[in-house]
């Protein structure tokens, strides 16, 4: 499938699809608390790698689908993802020259904001968390960032997504 010069945009869709599957994969209760936000990680990667392709609107659509999958209030993840994509669009030039550790720190900030916005919306329906444990997915996500980056970069290069 990787003929030279092809801009295989479908690969982006496939990676999001895999992220959705990981996001709803059943986990035991104690592990589910620390489930990283896979979709947000993939989103950040694509915004940083291809800011002209994946932006705020794509983030919004992806968020709506995740809302439906999670049974969250419609727009909860859409709002958070739109903000994350917006910040990533501002930061992408700096992110690209950062080393992995610095990148992970920025990703931690973005993912934490994502979780925080989600908590605000959940508190509207009084089903929010009452401890700081809700930041756990952001922490695990940031630790996994180098892995996601290397994996998605090799996918992008292999299929020449541009």
């Amino acid at each position: 499938m990787s003929q030279p010069g092809a801009n295989a945009v479908w690969v982006i869709g496939v990676t999001f699809g895999v992220a959705f599957l990981l996001a709803i994969f059943p986990l035991p209760q104690w592990l589910a608390v620390a489930r990283p936000d896979w979709v947000a990680l993939v989103l950040i990667y694509w915004v940083v790698a291809l800011p002209q392709r994946v932006g705020i609107f794509i983030a919004f659509l992806v968020g709506i689908l995740l809302d439906v999958l999670e049974g969250a209030a419609l727009g909860q993840n859409a709002l958070a993802f739109a903000l994350v994509a917006f910040l990533a669009l501002i930061l992408y030039q700096r992110l690209r020259v950062f080393n992995l550790g610095q990148q992970a720190a920025v990703v931690l900030m973005l993912l934490s904001l994502n979780q925080l916005l989600g908590q605000w919306v959940q508190n509207l329906t009084s089903s929010g968390a009452d401890t700081l444990l809700f930041l756990m997915p952001a922490l695990v996500g940031a630790l996994l960032w180098p892995l996601v980056l290397v994996l998605l970069r090799s996918v992008r290069r292999h299929y020449r997504v541009s």
């Binding site: 983030a59 919004f60 439906v68 209030a73 419609l74 727009g75 859409a78 709002l79 329906t125």
Partner: peptide, 25 residues
């Protein structure tokens, strides 16, 4: 998009207006 998302959230959480949309999605 932020305003759109906020509108959706309030339509869903406060006024329960999104049931049909959710069912389709």
């Amino acid at each position: 998009t932020g305003v759109l998302a906020l509108t959706l959230i309030f339509a869903d959480v406060r006024f329960n207006q999104m049931a049909a949309t959710r069912a389709t999605l």
